[in-house]
Amino acid sequence: MVFQDPSASLHPQLPVGRQLTDHMRVHLGLKGAAARERAVELLQTVQVPNPAEALKRYPHQFSGGQRQRIAIACALACDPEVLLADEPTTALDVTVQAGILKLLRDLAIERNLAVLLVTHDLGVMSAIADTVAVMKDGRIVELADRETLFRAPQHEYTRMLLAALPGSRIDESPEEAADE
């Protein structure tokens, strides 16, 4: 799982290398040089500069985007089939946000990884999602592929969300939207 705020999910008093290798020691049985080598590979995968040196540094010594990349590396440490990302770009500026979204998309493709992205930001969702589940009051009210959802939303709540987007033209019925 990748949480919204990597500062809260990374231990401030432990070097990044320790945090990455702890997962591998407990769950994969890797120790010493093997765990360290895998940690360097993971940091390379998520594009953290100077990964071998980064292992010795503490979370506060990285930017917000780099901390989020480290949190993603921790989540990938045991080769999961599903990565749950809870608002992973909320606290990041637009440029860094785009980089993190591209990274998540690339990881999904390269590792055949299912990414379950939880977000209220439809722009973020549209950049990464293949399939979208719209929830209201804790229940899924619409499930569709991204293009269908934007082109012809079926549920009134989905239409309201899309109509709230800047520059939206979702003020006609789904049938009218589909005709365009």
Rank of each mutant, 00 (worst) to 15 (best):
Q47E: 11
E81H: 12
A52W: 00
A54L: 04
P6T: 03
R139N: 14
A73Y: 11
A152R: 12
A77M: 03
T148N: 10
P153T: 01
A77F: 02
D171C: 14
V16D: 11
L76A: 10
T89S: 08
E110L: 07
L14Y: 04
L101C: 12
C74P: 00
A98P: 05
N112D: 14
G138Y: 05
L20D: 07
M1L: 09
V40T: 11
R139P: 07
A129N: 07
G167R: 04
A77G: 01
L42D: 09
T45N: 11
Q44W: 08
L42C: 07
I140H: 13
Y157I: 05
L104V: 02
V48M: 01
I70R: 03
H155C: 14
P166V: 05
G138E: 08
A178P: 02
L165K: 01
V134P: 02
R139S: 12
P59W: 08
P174D: 04
A164D: 03
M24D: 07
L162A: 15
V46K: 04
V96A: 09
L30D: 00
E110D: 15
E176F: 13
Q44D: 09
Q47A: 14
L103C: 13
Q44A: 15
Q4I: 01
T148F: 01
M125N: 15
L149E: 02
R67N: 12
G138F: 06
V82A: 12
R146D: 03
S126V: 00
F150Q: 09
L162I: 08
H11F: 02
T131I: 15
N50W: 13
V115T: 12
G17Q: 14
E172F: 14
V134H: 02
P80Y: 09
G99K: 06
V94E: 10
V118G: 14
A152W: 06
Q97F: 02
V16A: 10
V94S: 03
E41R: 14
V40M: 09
H11Y: 04
D79F: 12
T95D: 03
M1W: 00
A35D: 04
D179C: 10
P49A: 11
E156M: 03
V94F: 07
K136F: 14
V48I: 05
A39G: 07
K31C: 13
R111A: 01
P6M: 06
N112E: 15
L76I: 12
Q47W: 08
L101N: 10
A129T: 04
P12K: 07
R18L: 10
V132F: 11
L43M: 11
D22H: 13
E156K: 07
A71T: 06
A108T: 04
A98R: 09
R111D: 00
S9F: 07
D86W: 02
I72F: 08
H155G: 14
S173F: 12
D22V: 10
A163Y: 00
L116W: 01
T119F: 12
P6N: 04
E81Q: 15
I100A: 10
A163I: 05
G29Q: 03
R111I: 09
V46F: 02
T119Y: 07
R159P: 05
L149A: 05
G138M: 09
Q4W: 09
A144E: 05
E156D: 11
E53I: 00
T90K: 10
S7L: 13
L161Y: 07
P12Q: 06
E176D: 14
T158Q: 15
A133C: 11
L122F: 06
C74Q: 14
H120I: 04
D5P: 01
S168K: 08
G29Y: 12
T95K: 00
G138K: 09
E180Y: 13
A129F: 03
D106G: 02
